[in-house]
Design a protein around this nucleic acid. Structure first.
Lengths: 200, 200
DNA sequence: GCATAGAACGAACGGTCGTGCTATTTTAGG
DNA sequence: CCTAAAATAGCACGACCGTTCGTTCTATGC
């Protein structure tokens, strides 16, 4: 069966290319994403792949967009069904932890943030934009819990968002590097303790 | 004046090469470290640099060792002057935060951990070894504070070490990506709150 | 002062990179 | 069915990659 909304063949293979590119990025990073490499992975010619994006950088930017969209769909969207305030905040944190734990490879956004944190250009700009948006949405979720009177009066929304982010980042690090069972449980415990510490 | 311990000319330039390589790695990552690039940076020929290491991978491993040594000297060694237990633990955390805040570039160990977390080989092996050692020494410092009766009885050493590491990682992320003043202060506040939460 | 070993150089190799071009094939609309 | 357009292939290019090799320079011990 064809996709619900019929899309042209061009857009279809473009999507397929990006999907493959995402899995390459997860293991080799953004600098390891090459036109030739991905062409081989999707059984196309280099020039065939190239024609879809016009430049390697545009391909990288497209992959970055796709990664951000996937993240939003898997972490934030499922959480907005929860009641705003603490339930939603907990849902975000939980989905995020599970996202890191279940993904077969590293998070492209985390890799990109490290790879380009010192290289000015469009890629870094896009990464910073997404990371700022992520942080501000997380902060907003915290603020809703504060406004609902569920958190201590001295709870600083940005501060708590920073500390939640820290635990997520550390889980990503541990799970990928040590590959030891129990990393997720440890992160969950840390997250629980953190939120309890700020809870009214 | 010559160095305290006279070293041969070969070892001297080798050290100079590694020093330069460290600064390249800080901005371009380990995959961005090329023989030709570093040769140009130290005004040598490619083959001249190459002869010192025998292969690119051996160069990368040497740079990794140098990075680990620098970290130990700047974070752990200054802390062992403090009394074992809470003072020493706090000193480690403080020196570590300042290390990230003062370094002109990203930490090579953090970059390497992300770059090679999915690429088996000698480089990944060395990174995992160093990271495990770092974590276990941090855990040991926490355990000393527990043994000294300075922490709550339910304090889990590995758990606290994980959470301290999380804050360090998040500071590295924020400071390098957002370049906003206040990241260090935020991380310090998080660290203080974290340790207080576990303190007896 | 000379012989010897280490250090650095320069050129070259095969390979891969991104990127243009020009064909050729495939798709979609009238 | 036919045709214009889109999609893909093929090929060549310059640049850079790690690596090898033979040579040259330089420091050091006898």
């Amino acid at each position: 069966m064809s996709p619900a909304v019929a899309i042209g063949k061009g857009a279809a293979t473009r999507d397929a290319v990006i999907k493959r590119a995402l899995s390459i990025v997860r293991t080799d990073g953004f600098e390891g994403l090459t036109i030739g490499g991905i062409a081989q992975a999707v059984s196309m010619s280099k020039s065939g792949v190239f024609a879809h994006f016009g430049s390697r950088e545009d391909l990288q930017l497209a992959v970055l967009d796709a990664a951000a969209q996937r993240f939003t769909e898997n972490v934030f969207l499922p959480a907005i069904r929860e009641k705003r305030g603490l339930p939603r905040l907990r849902a975000i944190a939980r989905h995020w932890l599970n996202w890191f734990a279940s993904e077969g490879g590293g998070c492209p956004m985390v890799s990109a943030a490290i790879e380009y944190d010192d290289r000015p250009g469009p890629i870094r700009d896009k990464i910073v934009g997404y990371q700022k948006r992520l942080r501000s949405e997380l902060t907003r979720a915290v603020q809703m819990a504060i406004d609902a009177g569920e958190m201590k009066s001295d709870c600083d929304a940005e501060q708590l968002a920073f500390e939640i982010f820290a635990i997520e980042l550390a889980l990503h690090h541990d799970i990928r590097l040590f590959r030891r069972d129990g990393s997720l449980a440890r992160a969950e415990r840390a997250m629980h303790r953190l939120i309890e510490a700020y809870r009214a």
